[in-house]
Amino acid sequence: MIRILTALVMLMGLATPALAQSRFDGWATAVIAADWRTSRGQPIQAFDNARRDLVSSFVAAGFSRADMVDYSLRPDVADPVTATQAMAGVSSLTARATAGCLLYFTSHGSPQGMVFGPNRMLAPADMANLVRGWCGARPTVIVVSACFSGVFVEGLKGPNRMIMTAARRDRASFGCSEDATYPYFDGCIIESLPTATDFADLAHAAGACVSRREREEGLTPASEPQVWIGSEMQLRLPTLRFRRAVD
């Protein structure tokens, strides 16, 4: 009987894929949908759809849900979260999960910064101060999905940082209409994550995905997503591989 039970356990182990150990244990992850409107002010779901499915995708890639917060800053819900409350939540999270930081923002943007809630614009200098306080010298990946989001790159640069933006500093991004499931850049991140090996691979795949969609739909000028990687992160990224199911 013992031999039979042992054989069954071994067969079950072979039949069920195991999850490889995550390289992101102890990382703080924050995903914030900071707007909920079209450029004409009509309510949409695209930003919140992206927030929801980015959370699922990052959990599948090895980020702990217990060390993750996600916020929608839309005010037209029963218990709205303010920009101040969201910032406090990220601050609390990064104070206890100190191995690294993944910060993902999806919103509308302008050359002056990013919409951050109903009546607030987050300027590049403000973002730089927030990230410095939250993440310090720990390895940090910052993703800003918004029009003109390239304006954030210069202020966020650091040897321990990787920065991904949905557009050049002088370009719009696409996919924030009433009929869009996600902003294009967010959708391409979600599409690319299941097969990407690490953040560098993800940035390459998502950029190619955005370019393909814009070409196919004749959208101009191209948004040209940006990527910047600091010297320390260039060395560290190959060790920060996403978790995948293994046989």
Rank of each mutant, 00 (worst) to 15 (best):
1 M>C: 10
1 M>D: 11
1 M>K: 09
1 M>Y: 11
2 I>P: 04
3 R>L: 15
4 I>H: 09
5 L>N: 07
5 L>G: 03
5 L>F: 09
6 T>A: 15
6 T>N: 14
6 T>W: 11
6 T>E: 13
6 T>V: 14
6 T>L: 15
7 A>Y: 10
8 L>Q: 00
8 L>A: 10
9 V>Y: 08
9 V>I: 15
9 V>Q: 12
10 M>Y: 10
11 L>K: 03
12 M>V: 13
14 L>M: 13
14 L>A: 09
14 L>K: 02
14 L>E: 03
15 A>L: 15
15 A>V: 07
15 A>P: 03
15 A>Y: 07
16 T>C: 14
16 T>H: 14
16 T>G: 07
17 P>R: 11
17 P>V: 02
17 P>Y: 13
18 A>K: 11
18 A>W: 06
18 A>M: 08
18 A>Y: 05
19 L>C: 11
19 L>I: 10
19 L>W: 13
20 A>E: 13
21 Q>C: 06
23 R>S: 12
24 F>A: 10
24 F>N: 04
24 F>S: 03
25 D>I: 10
25 D>V: 08
25 D>A: 14
26 G>F: 08
26 G>V: 12
28 A>F: 09
29 T>S: 15
29 T>L: 13
29 T>G: 06
30 A>V: 11
31 V>H: 03
31 V>W: 02
31 V>M: 07
33 A>W: 04
34 A>M: 06
34 A>L: 04
35 D>Q: 03
36 W>C: 02
36 W>I: 02
36 W>K: 01
37 R>G: 00
37 R>P: 00
37 R>I: 02
38 T>K: 03
39 S>K: 11
39 S>V: 11
39 S>F: 07
40 R>P: 02
41 G>E: 08
42 Q>V: 00
43 P>Y: 04
43 P>T: 00
44 I>Y: 01
44 I>W: 02
46 A>M: 03
47 F>S: 01
47 F>E: 06
47 F>H: 06
48 D>C: 07
48 D>N: 15
49 N>R: 12
49 N>E: 07
49 N>F: 04
51 R>F: 02
52 R>Q: 15
52 R>N: 14
52 R>I: 13
53 D>M: 10
53 D>I: 05
54 L>S: 01
54 L>P: 01
54 L>Q: 02
56 S>H: 14
56 S>C: 12
57 S>K: 14
57 S>H: 11
58 F>S: 06
59 V>C: 04
59 V>R: 13
60 A>C: 04
60 A>W: 10
61 A>T: 05
61 A>P: 05
61 A>Q: 12
62 G>C: 09
63 F>W: 12
63 F>Y: 14
64 S>Y: 06
64 S>E: 14
64 S>G: 07
65 R>P: 10
65 R>V: 12
65 R>E: 14
66 A>L: 13
66 A>P: 02
67 D>K: 13
68 M>V: 07
68 M>A: 01
70 D>V: 05
71 Y>P: 00
72 S>I: 01
72 S>A: 13
72 S>L: 03
72 S>W: 08
73 L>T: 00
73 L>M: 07
73 L>R: 04
73 L>F: 08
74 R>Y: 00
74 R>F: 00
74 R>N: 10
75 P>T: 00
75 P>G: 01
76 D>R: 00
76 D>Q: 01
79 D>T: 08
79 D>C: 04
79 D>L: 13
80 P>Q: 01
80 P>W: 00
81 V>M: 09
81 V>F: 01
81 V>R: 09
81 V>E: 04
81 V>W: 05
82 T>R: 05
82 T>Q: 01
